[in-house]
């Protein structure tokens, strides 16, 4: 009985697997139980399924894998690159912050006194800028200057002031450097200063002052003052072109100066105060036979005295 059922089950599965012969099927059908199994199986095969909508599904898949695809491409290397990039940024940031040059800048009518890392003292005149590197200072005392500054250098190794016009280097001294618009003046008040410009080296001893215009030495003479005039709120010039003088006015006072019918190359020797504009203008105009006018906007006009 049991073996007979097993036999029939075997045949049933064989038929379901589509491997039975017609005779075997007939043999199965003789048993009513198996006949109904066959009927059920056949009827089930006749059922239909809802159909999948191929297109929209594929579109949905494509939409989702497109961005994934792009992310996928760089695989392992992307990780390496990311790590490398992070390190590079960190390193660059460290390097940048530690080697970043320090800048000191002054605006119009403003002076700034500060100390360098070796306690050398710098007084920066109006409208000037000094840039130096704190980290490298112990190795090389080097700074760049644009404008005018007075230095009291602590004794030590070479101290250099780089300017567009030339380099001033010293060992330990007090000196003033003025570099603006092609006009380069160095005055030494203590010790010895060496000035390099256009492949020329010039020694400036204490109490001397040199002036270089457009790469040409214009003056080399002794200065009597113990320190530059501008430290006492005065600007002094020695045979300087008027344009340089006017620019100094504009630096020390918040005014705009216009020159009319005046030769820019007119030479000025003298000084003007930083405290009173009226006085300063007078000091410049009188000796040069000029007249000045301050209009209601505060602008200064300078013209030749006999032009009107």
């Amino acid at each position: 009985m049991n073996t007979q059922k097993m036999e029939k089950d075997y045949l049933l599965h064989k038929w379901l697997n589509n491997e039975a012969t017609p005779e075997e099927l007939e043999q199965l059908k003789t048993d009513p139980e198996y006949a109904s199994y066959i009927q059920i199986s056949n009827a089930t095969s006749a059922f239909e399924l809802p159909q999948m909508d191929s297109e929209p599904n594929f579109k949905a898949i494509s939409n989702k894998i497109k961005p994934v695809h792009q992310l996928h491409k760089p695989n392992i290397f992307s990780v390496v690159w990311k790590v490398a990039a992070i390190f590079a940024v960190l390193l660059a940031g460290y390097y940048y912050t530690t080697t970043l040059d320090t800048s000191v800048k002054t605006d119009i009518a403003q002076t700034e006194t500060f100390s360098l890392p070796d306690t050398s003292e710098v007084i920066l005149n109006a409208g000037s800028k000094i840039t130096y590197n704190k980290k490298n200072w112990a190795k090389s005392r080097e700074l760049s200057l644009d404008g005018e500054a007075y230095f009291k250098v602590t004794k030590g190794n070479k101290f250099s002031v780089k300017t567009v016009e030339g380099t001033v280097s010293v060992l330990g001294t007090q000196f003033n450097v003025f570099v603006r618009d092609g006009f380069f003046a160095v005055a030494c008040y203590e010790g010895l200063v060496s000035v390099t410009y256009n492949d020329t080296i010039l020694k400036v001893p204490a109490g001397s002052k040199i002036q270089i215009e457009n790469g040409k030495l214009m003056m080399n003479e002794t200065a009597e003052d113990p320190s530059p005039d501008w430290l006492a709120a005065e600007s002094s010039f020695e045979n300087a072109p008027l344009s340089i003088v006017v620019k100094e006015i504009e630096r020390q006072y918040p005014v705009k100066v216009t020159l009319e019918n005046v030769d820019f190359e007119k030479r000025f020797t003298g000084s003007f105060t930083h405290k009173k504009l009226d006085l300063a203008l007078k000091a410049i105009c009188e000796p040069l036979q000029l007249q000045y006018k301050i209009d209601k906007n505060g602008a200064v006009h300078i013209d030749a005295k006999n032009s009107k």
Partner: peptide, 8 residues
């Protein structure tokens, strides 16, 4: 949910 047979 199956659809009804339409075959045979």
């Amino acid at each position: 949910v199956l659809k009804h047979a339409k075959r045979q």
